[in-house]
Design a binder for these strands. Structure first.
Lengths: 337, 337
DNA sequence: ATGAAAGCGCTAACAA
DNA sequence: TTGTTAGCGCTTTCAT
């Protein structure tokens, strides 16, 4: 069914090899021949068969990009950033979704490997660190949004981010600051740890209150009720934006004014937080920077496979919005006005 | 570097052909041989080379799925739905993003074609209808979220959706109902048309007010200001959830109570609308159903390539939330209490 | 139940 | 500047 290189060669009256060269823009092809080849190819509607090409050549010029969760807008943003900073302009990439399940991530990676990708980029990942380390031994691999020992990775400085939020709360006079964490993930642990340390540093160890969550809006609602029942904090730092949103919903249902009765902060600065309707105080970092770093790390890894793995830590910045500062942005409040 | 079939064959003391059969689970392979092959493969860490496989066989058992915009959560939801209803359990699929640019979509499709995918699924698309029709001539193609004449497609019944919203507004006593549209897209046109028709049907032609937007939150904010300046509607129907959110933000900034001073409805019922904090009245439809239909259409198309294209229209349902009905859900209001 | 031969469409090494 | 010869790793006839 398909038009092959041989067809084009015949039509152009040249050899297959030469046509192949011409089509790939080699410099040792005469202008006349090149035009002839291009013409013949166009007339025949020739499309190169990538499977054949990849089988025949050692490099595939293809990078596999695995997004751990398509529902999380963070990853779409990271992909945009990475897209702008591909290691090589000619590179293509294959995309896959992990569907929030390690087994699906595993399958996607197997599929990438079976397709002989030159490298793999992990945008977030639920896989155990050992799996990622193993993968990185044989395949150039970069992880964004998660730190894996011995593997090139880019992450935001979680501790610095938590510090920004906590200092902000302190400067507003809050002492009873609770934390809704993100469960078992590596980053959740770091953020929780930082929260505890900073509370202690400020001599607020007696006010430490941690609720366990899982980054979902529902867990935010549950956390609010739990926290409100047993102590009524004046501020809550949620491990991510989405769960902060859950806290907001539940707080409003309970008739509380935000930030008068309760101040709330999230983490990541997703589109959600930026929305004027939500206007959530949070910490964020440049997706474009993270994408650029991912691309750089990958380029370096592919050109010097034996080099030592690097871990880049991006500095976050505080985004003050109306869930912590009342007059930062016009905002309705049911009481306390 | 890689372990090939020949390596496995040698190890198992069998021929390459036979090993290939065994690995693919053919029934004409003895139990003893199969175990031996499996063992040898495992010991050597054999991974089939998909490029070679796809080159050698006519079918690739691979479906290309193009998501027009990764930032739109709608498509992630559709992919989940489709994933559960793949035409064939053995099928794999390749993912690609269109980056909200027709040229990128074109490139992704070319890439799919070069990889010899058996079929293509378009989750939304910015491509001109003619491009899609052309594609569908040679490659089994299904479009979800958009209707293309002569190509299998699944869409929600836009007219029915608009009707649901408008009837809802009417039942609440609204007459000055404005519409924020979605620009030039096919669906935006249908929704706008339906809005006009229904207003006329109710004898409200004098209250018809249309603002042009582009599905973004920003366009919602702009629309609010424009509409408020010149006529103060009592209700606004936005072409999608995100732009409805923009209206909400701007309205609140202006000190209006929702829904007391202004009622707002969106379209699509994305996670955004469902959030307790947003709680937006909208119309939605089952992503799982749409995914299932997509899978069915594709299966049918692949088995009977010459059959006539079908267009499935899903019925939406109204989701009443607190941007139209005050006591539907606890909600703070700055005034009018 | 097993295998030999041929070839998928392309690139790579080497001639001429 | 052009062409020839060998494969890449697999599946597919078609034998045995």
């Amino acid at each position: 069914m398909g038009v092959t290189l041989d067809d084009v060669a015949q039509r152009a009256g040249l050899s297959r090899t030469y046509v192949s060269l011409a089509l790939r823009g080699s410099s040792r092809v005469s202008e006349r021949s090149r035009t002839r080849v291009l013409e013949a190819a166009k007339e025949l509607g020739y499309r190169p068969n990538l499977n054949a090409r990849r089988l025949a050549s050692s490099r595939t010029d293809t990078i596999g990009v695995l997004i751990s969760d398509l529902h999380n807008p963070l990853y779409a943003e990271l992909l945009d950033g990475f897209d702008e900073h591909l290691p090589d302009r000619r590179d293509q990439w294959l995309l896959a979704s992990g569907f929030r399940e390690p087994s699906r991530e595993r399958a996607a990676i197997d599929s990438f490997l079976a397709l002989q990708v030159d490298a793999i980029v992990l945008l977030g990942s639920l896989l155990p660190a050992t799996s990622i380390q193993e993968l990185a031994v044989n395949t150039p691999t970069v992880v964004a949004g998660r730190q894996v020992r011995g593997v090139d990775s880019v992450v935001v400085d979680d501790v610095a981010g938590v510090k920004l939020i906590m200092e902000h709360f302190r400067s507003l006079g809050h002492s009873r600051i609770a934390h809704l964490d993100g469960g078992n993930g590596a980053r959740a642990k770091t953020r929780r740890r930082a929260y505890i340390d900073i509370m202690r540093f400020h001599g607020l160890q007696d006010h430490i209150r941690i609720c366990s969550g899982n980054y979902t809006e529902q867990s935010g609602e549950d956390a609010f009720h739990e926290l409100w029942r047993e102590g009524k904090p004046s501020a809550i730092f949620a491990a991510n934006d989405l769960s902060a949103l859950g806290i907001l919903s539940a707080a409003r249902s309970a008739g509380l004014g935000i930030p008068t009765d309760l101040a709330v902060a999230g983490f990541d600065d997703t589109a959600l937080a930026q929305s004027g309707w939500v206007s959530l105080t949070t910490v964020g970092y440049s997706r474009s920077d993270m994408g650029a770093v991912t691309g750089d790390l990958l380029k370096h890894r592919m050109s010097t496979p034996e080099s030592k793995a690097r871990s880049v830590v991006l500095q976050p910045s505080l985004k003050v919005r109306s869930t912590t500062v009342a007059d930062h942005y016009p905002r309705d409040r049911p009481k306390g006005q």
